[in-house]
C-alpha cells in the first residue's frame, strides 16, 4: 500500500508556476531523497502534498481530515521555530498531540514513544535543558525527535540534517533507514548529495518545476543530470564501503 500518492500536482503562486504536473508515489519501506537546486520547488512540493498550501491535482494526504493526516504523516519544516523557552522533553512530547483526545494527558505509550525518540536522537542527557538555550544543531535534533515521536508511517522532513555535525548527519540518515526497515517511509529533502547517495533507497530530482529524474541514486545522479540541474561535475564510485559521491567542479 502506498503511503503517499500525488498525481498531476501543480502549484501556482502570485501568477508564477512553481510546480507543474508532478506525480509521485511513495511505498512502504523507502527512504526517498528529494534533491534539486535552490528554488527548484522541494519545500513547495512537500507542503502541497500535505495540503498546507493550495494546489491543483490530487494528493492522498491532503484529502484526509486534519487529525487523520496527522497520524499518517509527520512534517518537519525547514524553519526551526521554537517560540518559548520550554524544555526538550516538552517539545518532543508535542509530537504526541495527534494521538491524544481532547483534554487527555499523555499515556505510558506516549511517554515510551517520546523516550525512544529522545534516545534515537541522542538527547537522553538533554531532556530537561531549555530548547532556546541549545545550539542550532541541537535544536534541529530536538525537532527531528519531535517528528519521530509522532509515530507516523510517513515522515516528511525539509532539510533535516542541515546544520548537524557529521556524526549526527549520518546517524539521522540511519534512523530514516531504520524506519524503512520497519515498513515506514521517509521523504527527505537534501542538499548533501553524498549522504543522499549513501542512505537513500531512491532519489527524486526536481528541476524547473517538474520531476526530471526518479529512481535509484546511481541512475538519478548521472553525469548528464548533474550537469543540467546542478551545473557540477562529480566523482561517483561503488566501493567496499558503499557508494561514494563527491561533487568536484562548477561548470561554467
Amino acid at each position: 500500500m502506498s503511503l503517499l500518492a500525488i498525481s498531476d500536482l501543480s502549484v501556482t503562486r502570485r501568477g508564477r508556476s512553481i510546480l507543474r504536473d508532478v506525480s509521485l508515489t511513495i511505498d512502504a519501506g523507502e527512504v526517498v531523497g528529494l534533491i534539486g537546486g535552490n528554488g527548484a520547488g522541494k519545500t513547495t512540493l512537500m507542503r502541497a502534498a500535505l495540503g498546507l498550501i493550495g494546489f491543483d491535482g490530487r494528493s492522498s494526504l491532503a484529502d484526509m481530515p486534519l487529525r487523520v493526516r496527522a497520524k499518517q504523516a509527520a512534517w518537519l519544516p525547514q524553519a526551526r521555530e521554537l517560540a518559548w523557552p520550554v524544555d526538550v522533553q516538552t517539545v518532543v512530547t508535542l509530537g504526541r498531540i495527534p494521538h491524544l483526545a481532547a483534554g487527555q494527558r499523555p499515556t505510558q505509550a506516549d511517554q515510551a514513544a517520546v523516550d525512544t525518540a529522545l534516545h534515537e536522537m541522542g538527547l537522553d542527557a538533554m531532556r530537561h535543558r531549555t530548547v532556546t538555550r541549545l545550539s542550532g544543531g541541537e535544536q534541529a535534533r530536538v525537532l527531528i525527535a519531535r517528528t519521530l515521536a509522532q509515530g507516523t508511517p510517513l515522515v516528511m522532513a525539509d532539510e533535516p540534517i542541515a546544520g548537524l555535525d557529521p556524526g549526527h548527519q549520518i546517524s539521522t540518515m540511519k534512523i530514516f533507514a531504520g524506519m524503512a526497515k520497519q515498513g515506514k517511509s521517509a521523504l527527505v529533502s537534501l542538499h548533501d548529495l553524498g549522504l543522499a547517495a549513501r542512505h537513500c533507497t531512491r532519489l527524486v530530482l526536481l528541476g524547473e518545476g517538474r520531476i526530471v529524474a526518479d529512481g535509484p541514486p546511481q541512475s538519478v545522479l548521472s553525469t548528464d543530470n548533474l550537469r543540467r540541474h546542478f551545473a557540477i561535475t562529480a566523482h561517483f564510485e561503488h566501493t567496499p564501503h558503499g557508494p561514494i559521491f563527491q561533487p568536484l567542479e562548477v561548470l561554467e
Binding site: L66, E81, L94, I97, A102
Partner: peptide, 21 residues
C-alpha cells in the same frame, strides 16, 4: 479550549497544522 493548539504553535504555524491543529 485553546491550550493544546497554543502548545503546538510553539513549533510554528506549519508544524502545528501538520499536527492536526
Amino acid at each position: 479550549g485553546v491550550g493544546r493548539g497554543l502548545d503546538a504553535l510553539t513549533l510554528g504555524e506549519d508544524a502545528a497544522e501538520a499536527m492536526g491543529i
